[in-house]
């Protein structure tokens, strides 16, 4: 099912609008991630889709049907809440069967569906337990099974991974991806973690300040961000930024002059800073203040005369004084309003 949000406005009491003129489209059968910092309005979007909030203005469409004022229970949606909201007084089996019971499905049919879902989320041996007896990861899988029970047209996941530890996160991220592929249900995943979004989403929507900043695949967002906010929210370590005036002259020369003159801010990806022989005319002298090993990679903190930069392209070294070259494909130029005017090779 394709979901369309058109010109949505929503403000909580006595606060500036959380969403203003917000429009977005979620393609049918795909997993869309809403990525943004807390307070960006991403949970608000989810609650609007769920029908737990009603917009002050604007429309929501499920395919061609308008559902803006339709009650949650008539929207045919499955939702996984942030800390799962499993009914504590029901067993895993009855939790999963709950939406079917509400729809007056007969008990035998109900439990058959539960068996299917338990298989899908790999919880078959835990059906008789109560939620409090399960680990966080198991609870999450039960919550997903419950959300899928009535074969919803839309699956909403509200930060489903945020309360889990790193190893489990990886596992369950995979799990969500697998289940979404197996069922083909249109899915929205809200997260503040770019790794969650990059690893499983077909398309990522970046939200900040109540506005949709950009929609695209992980590659597109990284290579061709529309603005500084997007560029800063994708990529780890975060994009190095500096004012154009602070950039050393030797590096300015590798950037295209026509765009450079319009720009106020330069963004430098960490992989664009590499070691170069001092004889090269486009190098800048720098000192290494800190180098840390992050698994396979090294993350190096550098200082030039004017800048503090982070690089991941420097090899492990004991030197502190180094000559650093700048790779133009890892550079971004931003205009005064934050718009990206040049992104390494092509202009945005």
């Amino acid at each position: 099912m394709q979901v369309t949000l058109r010109d949505i406005k929503l403000a909580y009491d006595h606060q500036p609008a959380t969403l203003n003129h917000f429009s977005a489209q979620l393609p049918d059968g795909q997993l869309t991630a809403l990525l943004g910092p807390s307070g960006s309005g991403k949970s608000t979007v989810l609650n609007l889709l769920a029908g737990l909030l009603t917009p002050d203005a604007g429309q929501i469409y499920f395919d061609q049907t308008e559902v803006t004022h339709l009650a949650s229970r008539q929207r045919h949606i499955g939702m996984v809440f942030q800390d799962y909201a499993l009914y504590p007084h029901l067993t895993v089996r009855d939790n999963i069967a709950f939406p079917l019971k509400m729809a007056h499905v007969r008990k035998a049919a109900r439990y058959q569906r539960v068996a299917e879902l338990a298989q899908l989320v790999q919880m078959t041996d835990q059906l008789a337990k109560f939620p409090r007896q399960l680990s966080g990861g198991q609870q999450q899988r039960v919550a997903i099974a419950r959300a899928l029970a009535k074969r919803p047209d839309l699956l909403l996941l509200d930060e489903p991974l945020s309360s889990l530890d790193t190893t489990l996160r990886e596992d369950l991220r995979e799990g969500i991806h697998r289940i979404q592929r197996a069922t083909g249900v249109t899915t929205v995943l809200v997260t503040h973690d770019q790794d969650d979004a990059l690893q499983i989403a077909d398309q990522i929507m970046i939200l900040a300040d109540g506005r949709l900043q950009q929609v695209g695949t992980g590659t597109a967002l990284y290579r061709h961000p529309h603005n500084l906010t997007v560029a800063q929210s994708i990529g780890r370590p975060q994009l190095n930024t500096c004012a154009v005036t602070a950039l050393p002259t030797a590096w300015r020369q590798v950037l295209p002059l026509e765009y450079y003159q319009q720009a106020t801010t330069v963004g430098i990806r960490s992989e664009a800073l590499h070691l170069e022989t001092p004889t090269d005319p486009h190098t800048v002298a720098g000192t290494i203040s800190r180098q840390i090993q992050l698994g396979r990679d090294h993350q190096t903190t550098l200082h030039t005369a004017t800048l503090r930069l982070v690089s991941t392209a420097l090899p492990a070294t004991l030197q502190t004084a180094v000559s650093i070259g700048l790779d133009p494909t890892g550079c971004l130029l931003f205009a005064a309003d934050g718009r990206c005017i040049w992104a390494g090779d092509a202009h945005a």
């Binding site: 769920a50 737990l52 009650a71 949650s72 009914y87 509400m102």
Partner: peptide, 24 residues
């Protein structure tokens, strides 16, 4: 959140009361 979850699970007001609120 339990009542919100029940709402999404398709429970009407009476079902929410008998199946969620009352047992809790």
């Amino acid at each position: 959140r339990y009542t919100a979850a029940a709402r999404l699970d398709g429970a009407n007001a009476w079902q929410r009361f008998t199946n969620v609120t009352w047992p809790l």
